[in-house]
Write a protein that binds this DNA or RNA. Structure first.
Lengths: 239, 239
DNA sequence: CGTTATATTGATAGATATCAATACGGGTGG
DNA sequence: CCACCCGTATTGATATCTATCAATATAACG
């Protein structure tokens, strides 16, 4: 989802300080901690699994580079994608609360994550992690609700437009271009996320392209007319 | 959603002690607290609003009797119902995390809730509320994910079947009949929850009735063939 | 007992799923 | 380095389900 496959992401801590998500901020502070505490990182290849449904949750993860998807499998049914995560965002929150991951997370490209272990070894006074996580959990819940609206309302074109607007904003917030990026997920992932079949995803992308709102070349995507996209997505703005 | 409109619910604490939801258990213990602390209760009439989107979140609520729905309004769009709550369940969790309610909650019938104030005045050692709430938040997230699956997969009949199976199980878990109860919500609420139009809800109820799986009389509902319902809802069992 | 909200039922149109065939593209191995 | 191959994506034709529109029926409430 970065502008180019092997591009290095912008300096994260700088970005995170500006962002309003508390955990990344806190993480940045942790890494500068006087005790010199450095969070363990994990490097993953495309397709590698960060955690699997049912795994014991050992912590949460902050994406440092790359992108992941998280999904659940409703009783041996087909996969349901519930979210995509780009650099600077947090993965694995549901696990924190109940101690066991309710879903899985898979790298969509070569990815690096920082691990926030569950048993906190840091100074809680300097960095009230519990509170931050509670806030993040609440946000995750909001996100899930917005996702529900996105996946159930409007036409296929509108859902796609809504998704792209959301993604665009997130890319922008993380220091990438908001109008030109690569969709790291397959059409099937997109379809699952938006409750559409892959053929419909294809056709809707073409439709938006025919409306001169996008330029699509496989997974490479350029937003030509952001305002037009917004008008194509009337109800339920994601942010 | 109780068996009859004005019926008194079963003794709650007994039920809650058996249930695995930690907060109700904790609440029961709180009410028996040596200090004699009694949680404030609030009695509501049908249609009354417990909290509104944007309100400061002063706490979470445990349903003691009656039923509520919670919903969000995506930027002045139409209402999106995100959950129904019967006696013994918890309402208002998203608010806890971020301090402000992301959605609204409305009583579907005359209802009484116990209020768990945000600023805890109780003994945290005896009752680690924070931890319990974190767990509940995690569960709420899981619930949201299952809801997404329910509202986006399968035919109208299957969604209805899935919803009724879920509700049946919850009623049973709370000490009510699992096969005979009253749907407290309107068809419009049901439609919003399941991403269907009210006409489709009506027709699907009739369809399930014609299949001898249900008996529907307005909002009164009797499940005739639980096993048949389960088969009518193949993928994505809710629990 | 009337009035309004809610629910049912029917006819039809429209959007997306489904089925099928083809094209593209990235990765592997010769 | 090229060719092959499999996963992925596109495109077309058609079927199907649900939304929509419209009319009526029923229930709730004052």
């Amino acid at each position: 989802m970065t502008a180019a496959p092997a591009e290095t992401p912008p300096a994260l801590c700088a970005t995170w300080d500006a962002a309003d998500t508390c955990l990344p901020c806190g993480l940045a502070r942790l890494e500068r901690h006087p005790a010199g505490l450095l969070l363990p990182h994990r490097r993953m290849r495309r397709g590698e699994v960060l955690f699997r449904q049912g795994d014991a949750a050992t912590g949460v993860y902050v994406v440092r580079a790359g992108a992941l998807k998280s999904s659940i499998c409703a009783s041996d049914g087909p996969e349901q994608v519930v979210g995509f995560h780009v650099a600077g965002e947090v993965v694995g929150l549901q696990g924190w609360a109940c101690g066991r991951h309710e879903g899985s997370a898979v790298a969509l490209e070569d990815t690096e994550v920082a691990v926030l272990p569950r048993a906190g070894a840091w100074d809680d006074a300097a960095f009230p992690l519990e509170k931050a996580l509670q806030r993040l959990l609440g946000r995750e819940l909001e996100r899930a609700h917005r996702h529900l609206v996105l996946a159930t309302r409007g036409t296929a074109d509108q859902r796609l437009a809504g998704f792209l607007l959301d993604l665009s904003q997130r890319m922008l917030a993380r220091g990438y271009s908001g109008t030109e990026f690569v969709l790291r997920m397959t059409r099937a992932d997109l379809g699952s996320y938006l409750a559409l079949q892959i053929e419909t995803v294809s056709r809707s992308l073409r439709s938006l392209q025919d409306q001169r709102l996008l330029e699509v070349d496989g997974r490479r995507l350029r937003i030509r007319d952001l305002e037009g996209l917004r008008q194509a997505f009337p109800a339920a703005a994601l942010h």
